[in-house]
Design a protein around this nucleic acid. Structure first.
Lengths: 223, 223
DNA sequence: CGGCGTATAGGTATAAATACCTGTTTTGAA
DNA sequence: TTCAAAACAGGTATTTATACCTATACGCCG
């Protein structure tokens, strides 16, 4: 029976990486077998690596590579596809619940905020390795709050204007065009114009499509 | 510093309850301070109880009380509202991912399938008490698959008929009343009748409200 | 400067949804 | 079997939404 756990780190900040290595060396069961500063080369290097890590610590905010962004999210996607047995533990400075949910949904097995103490890191690594998951209360809460939410599509931000988004939100609150016009001190015709544009831009047949679009893109919340 | 963890059990099967008590007595840090065979009386009894349990083990499949169903889900809802600090650990024979997600979304802090070994029970109790969560790989997988879904409201189950639900689903797919009528081989008048009932039952002003309701209650998925 | 997109407003139509009604048939549970 | 709810169908009317036009004012950018 092998007691050691092979650990890898993908982290761009050298200082933090060194700190993490120091923490890992405290416990004999951990063996660091892989480290990398960016997501792009990680997959390449892993193929050439003699030992595949059991647990990979991945920094969420990796630097962009040239034009393309390649964050911890992308790494998680790539790793969980290439190495289904590898357990992925996200390290992040963000406590944003959307981030947490997103990562978990894309294959991460655990999420740690970077201010955790070493003991929790140890616990988390062991937990993902043995149980396949490490979720603490904070993370659980994020998952609870975010079920039903998805992150807004990138293209959306440029497609839909501020005013259109405003009107879309009011539509989703079950206001009629007339009521929206009153609220915004504009003509009903204008509101209808915006709605027509929204239908066209979102490719919807009717308000139903607009509501679905708004929810998918997190323009409104499903409270 | 108090090391003991006060534990409660809500479980209708006497044999299983006794078995669990035996398991708990194995470890000195656990102290059983509450037990109950059904969900209805649990809240009542808890109010009269001198010690509020830190962790409550709740059987998912509690027997119905008279006409009304009152499962572990209802207990979870009630407990997490009445005792926000209490950690709820679900015991279930079901591995159904919808069940798991449902419970977690309604306030449960952990989910255990009943065939687990005593060691995992101990680990789970300690974990929910200290970390506020116990999620193993099985449960995590359920959450991953089911994020984006929410569980239908309890009242909904009796309120909305099958046919109405069917029509609501088609409405959410952007079909008009006429198209729905064609699809279901019924009259447009009938479709409108159903929709009128839906509007009334859900308290909506228009289709927008219907769509929101359908999404909230997982009648349709936000794919 | 000129072009582009946004926000604004209007007209004219039709399609669809919604509000009230009244019924009959089917189905499921007591 | 009996009864209530659900599913079905229809009428009439009004309100909203949607489609397809045009057109002006404003700001931004090359």
């Amino acid at each position: 029976m092998e007691n050691r756990i092979f650990v890898g780190i993908i982290e761009d900040q050298l200082l933090f990486r060194e700190g993490m290595k120091a923490i890992l060396s405290t416990w004999p069961e951990f063996e660091l077998v892989f480290e990398c500063a960016d997501g792009y080369s990680a997959i390449d290097k892993l193929n050439k690596c003699a030992i595949t890590p059991d647990v990979m610590l991945v920094d969420l905010s990796l630097p962009p590579q040239g034009q393309k962004e390649f964050s911890g999210l992308h790494v998680t996607l790539a790793l969980s596809e290439a190495y289904p047995d590898m357990k992925i533990l996200i390290l992040s400075v963000h406590e944003d619940e959307n981030f947490i949910t997103q990562l978990i949904n894309h294959g991460a097995h655990g999420y740690l905020v970077k201010d955790v103490d070493p003991g929790e890191v140890q616990e988390a690594i062991i937990s993902v390795h043995k149980k396949g998951a490490y979720i603490n209360e904070r993370t659980l809460r994020a998952l609870q709050h975010n079920t039903g939410k998805k992150v807004r599509t990138v293209k959306l931000l440029t497609q839909i204007t501020r005013r259109e988004e405003e009107i879309l939100q009011l539509i989703c609150r079950q206001y009629t065009a007339e009521e929206i016009a009153e609220k915004l001190f504009i003509s009903v015709k204008t509101v209808n114009g915006h709605r027509t544009n929204l239908l066209q831009k979102t490719g919807s047949r009717n308000v139903t499509g607009l509501v679905l679009y708004a929810l998918k893109n997190n323009i409104v919340d499903l409270v």
